[in-house]
Structure formats: structure tokens, C-alpha cells
């Protein structure tokens, strides 16, 4: 693991808080819970190059939980796909940074998402294309834990298993909360692992804030063949900002300028 991963993730979190405060709306909780996963993928695992963004051999990432767009944008900006200074244009009418990812407008975004439950099918399609072309790229898909209540996720889980898509590496950002409350109060999602295993997946559960664990899980996924891999990442919604952590109310509310200042100060001190 590269030694500056902590700094990369910290900068992403600061960017997320600041762009959401500037936007005045958006989804901090699920952006901050997915930050460490995206940091490891974009800065340690994925074969991507902002100077050659259409390389047919590049790895792809589908942010199925499109409301975590701020985390994706923070990663892409820091990676060099577009200037970091543009992040504060998020959700503005003149901006190429849409409220949910738009591949038509934003460099580095591989798929437009936002309507939950569709991303895993798209990732499967990308993996099928790679197989047809004898390319060795991996397709990462980041789903929310509430998102897997969508029926299409299970259609896609079935087809990834059926076609043995071992170049699909999916994550469930398991922060346990969704808009109306705790996942299992709203609609039981557990046991996530058993369900995916039953559909023919290789399944792991890790601490989604442990860089080494994320990295090791991806390595293990790449080493396994014949099956798609699901990594259930146990995470904390709002991770890194104490007043947001595990608070369902921070799913879809942006911090005020004052709250953002407090959050950034806390992140800086970490």
C-alpha cells in the first residue's frame, strides 16, 4: 500500500465536504462511507490514465450508488481527470459536475448512474465486452446497501454468476443506513453474503475503511477465476466527520458553511 493513501483519502473527504457545502445540496453520508474504497481503487488498484482516458484496456468503475458522486468526483479530480478547483461547481447549472454521475459531461466517469440498481448490469455488460475482445481489464461496481433492495440487482447477480464474470469486482458499501433509517428496519438486506454466494459469487467481508483490507480483497478477487467477486465493505456512514457519523439525517443534506468549516478542521487534524 502506498504510504500517502491516508493523505489522498483525507483530501477526498475535505473536497467532498467543501463541494457539498458550496452546492447546498447532495449526499455526504454515503460519499464519506465510500471514500476509502474509491481511494484505494483509483490510487492503488485501477489501471487508468487521465492522459489516455479512452484506452480500451483501462479498468472501469461504475458508481452504481450514483448519489455518492462527490466521492467519485473527488477521486477523479485528485487523479487528474479535471481540475480540483472545479469541484465547487458541483450541481450548478453551468457545471459539468452533475448531481449524479454523467459520462457525457464528466471526464473519467465511465457510466451515467443515479437510478439505483442498474450499475451492476452495466458492469456485467462491460465485462462481457472485455471477454469478447480478449482484454484483461477489470470492472468495479460500487453499490449501496439500500440499493440492493432493487430487484434488478438480483437479476444482475444471477447473470454475473451465470456467465462466470470473474472480471467483475463489486462492492457493497455497507454503512447500514438509508434515507428512512436502518437497512433492516426499512427492508431486510441481510444476509448479503449468503445471498450473493447462492447466486454463484465469490464473497468477502472486510473493514471498508482499512486500506490494506480493501487492497487485499481486490487482489484476492483478481486471483479467483470463474466467479464474480462481491466485497461487502463494512463502513460508517459519514466516516471522518464526527457529527455526521452513523447519522441517518446526513444521507442527503449538505453541510452549511459553518458545519463544513468544522468538518474540515476535524478532517485536517486526523
Amino acid at each position: 500500500m502506498r504510504s500517502d493513501m491516508q493523505d489522498i483519502a483525507k483530501q477526498m473527504r475535505i473536497d467532498i465536504v467543501e463541494m457539498l457545502a458550496a452546492a447546498g445540496s447532495g449526499h455526504p453520508g454515503g460519499s464519506l462511507s465510500a471514500t476509502d474504497i474509491l481511494a484505494v481503487l483509483y490510487f492503488d488498484k485501477m489501471n487508468i490514465d487521465p492522459a489516455n482516458p479512452t484506452d480500451p484496456d483501462r479498468d472501469r468503475l461504475v458508481l452504481a450508488k450514483g448519489h455518492a458522486a462527490p466521492a467519485l468526483y473527488a477521486a477523479l479530480a485528485q487523479k487528474g481527470f479535471f481540475p480540483r478547483k472545479d469541484l465547487i461547481t458541483l450541481r450548478k447549472s453551468s457545471s459539468y459536475l452533475q448531481g449524479h454521475p454523467n459520462m457525457q459531461t464528466t471526464p473519467g466517469v465511465e457510466m451515467s448512474t443515479g437510478s439505483l440498481g442498474q450499475g451492476l448490469s452495466v458492469a456485467n455488460g462491460m465485462a462481457l465486452a472485455g471477454r469478447l475482445d480478449n482484454r484483461d481489464y477489470y470492472v468495479y461496481c460500487i453499490m449501496g446497501d439500500g440499493e440492493i433492495q432493487e430487484g434488478q440487482v438480483w437479476e444482475a447477480a444471477m447473470s454475473a454468476g451465470h456467465y462466470g464474470l470473474d472480471h467483475v469486482i463489486a462492492f457493497v458499501d455497507h454503512n447500514h443506513l438509508q434515507i428512512d433509517g436502518n437497512n433492516n428496519e426499512v427492508m431486510t438486506v441481510n444476509p448479503i453474503e449468503d445471498k450473493f454466494r447462492a447466486f454463484g459469487w465469490n464473497v468477502m467481508t472486510i473493514d471498508g475503511h482499512d486500506f490494506d483490507a480493501i487492497s487485499d480483497a481486490v487482489d484476492a478477487a483478481k486471483a479467483s477465476s470463474g466467479k464474480p467477486t462481491l466485497i461487502v465493505a463494512e463502513t460508517i456512514k459519514g466516516k471522518g466527520v464526527s457529527f455526521m457519523e452513523n447519522q441517518v439525517g446526513w444521507h442527503g443534506v449538505a453541510p452549511t458553511a459553518e458545519q463544513a468549516k468544522e468538518a474540515v478542521a476535524e478532517l485536517m487534524a486526523q
Binding site: 459520462m103 465511465e110 442498474q118 452495466v122 455488460g125 462491460m126 462481457l128 465486452a129
Partner: peptide
């Protein structure tokens, strides 16, 4: 949506 993924990879 699978078709969309294939199209995103130029199929």
C-alpha cells in the same frame, strides 16, 4: 442495462 454496458465498450 447489460446492453448499455456492452455499448459503453464500443459493441
Amino acid at each position: 442495462a447489460t446492453a448499455a454496458g456492452l455499448a459503453a465498450c464500443d459493441k
